[in-house]
């Protein structure tokens, strides 16, 4: 009974792994995931890569334009563009 609840498929494990990248996985999910990765080497590797991807993207985050900044840029550019056409 107990074991059955904590056994998850690789598919589900991948889903939890994705959620965890955005800090949206619950504690129970994390326990299930840990338990699964103990047995499953493929998911272990996948989780490693997935975490690395998150780190890489986090490291460039300050260098992006925010949506509002982009909108501002776009509206001022569009004005000039209309004059040209």
């Amino acid at each position: 009974m107990f074991m059955k609840k904590f056994m998850i498929s690789c598919e589900e494990s991948g889903h939890i792994c994705d959620k965890a990248q955005y800090k949206e996985a619950s504690i129970i999910e994390k326990v299930k995931f840990k338990f699964h990765t103990l047995m499953c080497a493929v998911c272990r590797q996948h989780s490693k890569n997935n975490t690395k991807l998150t780190q890489l993207i986090d490291s460039i985050k300050g260098n992006q334009l925010s949506i509002s900044e982009k909108k501002e840029l776009k509206s001022s550019f569009d004005k000039e563009l209309q004059k040209h056409q």
Partner: peptide, 13 residues
């Protein structure tokens, strides 16, 4: 017309 969408991120970075 597509400059902002295509290149603004790259240029800003």
């Amino acid at each position: 017309n597509k400059w902002i969408d295509l290149y603004s991120d790259y240029l800003f970075n």
